[in-house]
Design a protein around this nucleic acid. Structure first.
Length: 270
DNA sequence: GCGACAG
DNA sequence: ATCTTGTCGC
């Protein structure tokens, strides 16, 4: 899979001003309304989507049911010295249909707000190795929840012109509408734009804090922060991620990509 | 100057 | 992100 918009490929050798300018251009081309052809209800595990048919004692995954499920990809990275191991794992229902990876030299350090310029190139290198075209891509980082509304999920989503969502373990910017501590599983609250977010009226909903996992009475799990990448609206992004969570804090696509990135990384040092 | 800050 | 053993709890 190659960039549909080569002009947006992040260039790590650009100046900070040029990077920020490119992000504004990316945000201007991003779509934050639903623009994908699959049924959101068919995303997630076969058990949850009903694409399997209960027959008394067994559950059969029907071929026609699985075939209609969209291709959902998870992207994650692992690091070794000054190299990035980027991986893309694609599933249809609960079946992994393709994995791709790339090992790339890192050009610049991590700078909050400029993550796509450090990891974007490596991620696109992994996508270049991918033969299928995912219907949805889940990134480990923010999308619209970003100073210029062009986080990693948005930047790469727009560059590849693929529907995408961002899932971050921490909040980069914006303000939760209500406190997020100790909330029950399934709970969500909007993340509202504040003065740190460009081109968004303060109060604009740019994502959600979502409690994907929680234990009984012990508020030890922090929520995840979900935001649209490209071609998905705020509420839909969180609906999709909720369907992709299968008993763990992080969505399954992310967990699979994370595990595979570690495998590739091991084979690199051993 | 101080605090905040995806991975 | 990464460096790292055991340990508390369902």
């Amino acid at each position: 899979m190659k960039p549909a918009r080569p002009e947006f490929v992040p260039d790590a050798s650009a100046t900070r001003e040029e990077m920020e300018a490119l992000q504004r251009d990316v945000a201007a081309d991003a779509t934050w309304s639903d623009d994908f052809d699959f049924d959101p209800g068919t995303v997630g595990s076969d058990r949850t989507t009903g694409s399997g048919v209960a027959t008394g004692q067994r559950t059969l995954s029907t071929d026609h049911g699985a075939a209609s499920a969209p291709l959902v990809a998870g992207v994650d990275q692992a690091f070794l010295d000054d190299r990035a191991v980027s991986v893309v794992v694609v599933r249809r229902g609960d079946t992994v249909v393709e994995r791709a990876h790339a090992v790339t030299d890192l050009e610049i350090p991590y700078i909050p707000g400029l993550l796509a310029f450090r990891e974007g190139g490596p991620i696109l290198a992994a996508f270049a190795e991918l033969t299928c075209e995912p219907d949805l891509v889940v990134f480990d980082g923010s999308g619209r929840i970003h100073y210029r509304q062009a986080g990693l999920a948005t930047h790469i989503g727009v560059t590849l012109d693929v529907p995408s969502v961002g899932v971050a373990k921490g909040l980069l910017c914006g303000t939760p509408e209500t406190g997020v501590d100790g909330r029950p599983e399934g709970w969500r609250t909007p993340i509202l734009a504040d003065d740190d977010v460009e081109n968004a009226a303060p109060g604009t909903k740019i994502g959600h804090a979502f409690q994907s996992r929680q234990y009984d009475s012990r508020p030890i799990v922090n929520p995840i922060y979900v935001s649209p990448g490209h071609r998905v609206r705020v509420d839909t992004a969180t609906d999709l991620v909720e369907r992709l969570c299968a008993g763990y804090k992080l969505p399954e696509p992310t967990r699979l990509a994370d595990a595979h990135a570690d495998e590739v990384k091991r084979g690199l040092s051993e």
